[in-house]
């Protein structure tokens, strides 16, 4: 953005999205929403969650890259977002692995008949 009446110190340079781009992203997001709704009826068994997550991932990418301007922004901000998602995946992955490993013992211990007040360690 150039406003020649202002000194350089007061100017901000940033990307302006064109109407065509905004509209086409919006249309793509609507299409993907329709796709994910219909995908939920496909007979794919346990893969349904991965298909759902994949489509949601594409939608999230479109929103982040274009609506949130990450494509035209400093790479630091994109890295931050990716890094935070990475930390969530780490948290989720390790916790999930542990819970599934210990589930047989939990089942064997015969939960949850004990009242909560006596369950304290």
């Amino acid at each position: 953005m150039n406003n020649s009446s202002l000194p350089a110190d007061e100017q901000i340079h940033s990307h302006v999205s064109s109407p065509q781009q905004l509209i086409s992203i919006f249309v793509a997001l609507l299409g993907l929403t329709a796709l994910t709704v219909s995908a939920s009826t496909w007979p794919v068994g346990r893969f349904d969650v991965w298909i759902a997550l994949g489509i949601a991932g594409v939608k999230a990418f479109l929103v982040a890259a274009y609506f949130m301007h990450l494509r035209y922004d400093k790479p630091t901000n994109s890295l931050l977002l990716l890094f935070s998602v990475g930390v969530v995946v780490l948290f989720l992955g390790v916790t999930l692995a542990d819970v599934h490993q210990s589930e047989p013992q939990v089942q064997a211990a015969g939960l949850p008949q004990i009242p909560a007040s006596e369950a304290a360690p």
């Binding site: 542990d98 909560a116 369950a119």
Partner: peptide, 16 residues
């Protein structure tokens, strides 16, 4: 656990 929850999950959350 009395409501189907997992107290060890709390520990994961807390220590994370």
């Amino acid at each position: 656990p009395a409501l189907g929850g997992d107290p060890v999950l709390y520990q994961h959350f807390f220590w994370f």
